[in-house]
């Protein structure tokens, strides 16, 4: 943990330099990576720090995008208001999901959140007059903001920086410690007098809030949202990014999003069998580095410093 500050600063400096050197298409890929990093980290807040693995964050993320685009294009609200509504919508949805799901754990939590996510997907698909059904919603939000690829990247990077800092403070706060306590020993925390469901509800809502911010950014980035943004595959890919980066590492979100999106980009331009290559990569990661890229790196680092690897926080 001592080492994370220089790493974080180096990372931030690196991200700030990206648009200066990359051609415009790669800037938009980088933008996408940043947006998905936030989604991934929000999943990690739950999965890594409370031990509850959700399968509905694609739905929360997408709902935020739907709300932004709907309020902006149909109600004609100004964009800042539309964005606030997007984040609020996602947070409320997360609160509702939390109320329904936090008393379960393990595989039951996984399945319940999966079902809740599917409901959102079903609504987006079938409520055609509002959501545009299969065809989704389209706007010119990004065009009306007058943002170039580089301009958008700068804005997104700024927001992502602030949100990442907020999440980092959140999981390191006394409240975050309580969450870890719940993860390690739920019964013990309860007997110590902590209101476990309340803590989980707050954590879930906060994670939904962060995912909502990612959703807003995605809405601006694409100017478009359709049921494929809220579908199960989206939730799963977010979770996979979290796992690849390292569950419980928070900043692993950046690594996970980078690895998966970059791989997708690279492999899909070579072969149409790219989903297979991705699948094999996941299997390889699960076998050789089940703790994720960052988790593995930390493990190796602590080993070489002869420190007890139990202190890693896994």
């Amino acid at each position: 943990m001592m080492l994370s500050r220089p790493y974080a600063l180096a990372g931030a400096a690196f991200l700030a330099c990206v648009p200066l050197v990359l051609p415009s298409y790669y800037v938009s890929v980088a933008t996408q990576i940043l947006i998905f990093s936030v989604l991934t980290m929000s999943i990690d807040v739950l999965a890594g720090f409370t031990g509850r693995t959700p399968l509905c964050f694609g739905a929360i993320f997408g709902t935020s995008a739907y709300v932004v685009l709907y309020t902006f294009s149909v109600f004609g609200w100004p964009w800042p208001l539309a964005m606030i509504c997007g984040v609020l919508g996602a947070s409320l949805l997360a609160l509702l999901f939390a109320a329904l799901a936090v008393r379960t754990s393990g595989v039951y939590f996984l399945l319940l959140t999966l079902a809740l996510g599917l409901i959102v997907w079903g609504i987006c698909l079938r409520w055609t007059p509002v959501t545009g059904g299969e065809n989704g919603l389209r706007t010119e939000l990004r065009q009306s903001l007058g943002l170039s690829a580089r301009g958008l990247y700068a804005c997104v990077a700024l927001v992502v920086g602030v949100v990442t800092f907020a999440m980092w403070r959140f999981v390191r706060s006394p409240f975050g410690l309580t969450l870890r306590g719940i993860k390690e020993g739920e019964g013990r925390m309860a007997s110590l007098g902590y209101d476990v469901p309340l803590h989980l509800t707050i954590a879930f809502t906060a994670a939904g809030f962060f995912a909502g911010i990612a959703g807003v950014l995605y809405a601006v980035f694409n100017d478009f949202v359709s049921p494929s943004t809220v579908q199960l595959a989206q939730s799963v890919s977010g979770l996979l990014m979290a796992i690849v980066g390292g569950i419980g590492t928070l900043f692993g979100g950046f690594v996970g999003a980078f690895v998966i999106i970059a791989l997708e980009q690279a492999v899909s331009s070579v072969t149409e069998r790219w989903p297979m290559v991705l699948g094999l990569t996941f299997i390889a990661i699960m076998i050789f580095a089940p703790e994720g890229v960052i988790g593995k790196a930390r493990l190796l680092l602590t080993k070489s410093h002869n420190i007890d690897p139990d202190g890693v926080g896994r």
């Binding site: 989704g136 389209r138 010119e140 065009q143 478009f224």
Partner: peptide, 14 residues
């Protein structure tokens, strides 16, 4: 698929 075409059309509009 219509939804893929609509998404791309919205992009090339810009």
């Amino acid at each position: 698929l219509a939804n893929t075409g609509l998404a791309v059309a919205n992009y090339v509009k810009g």
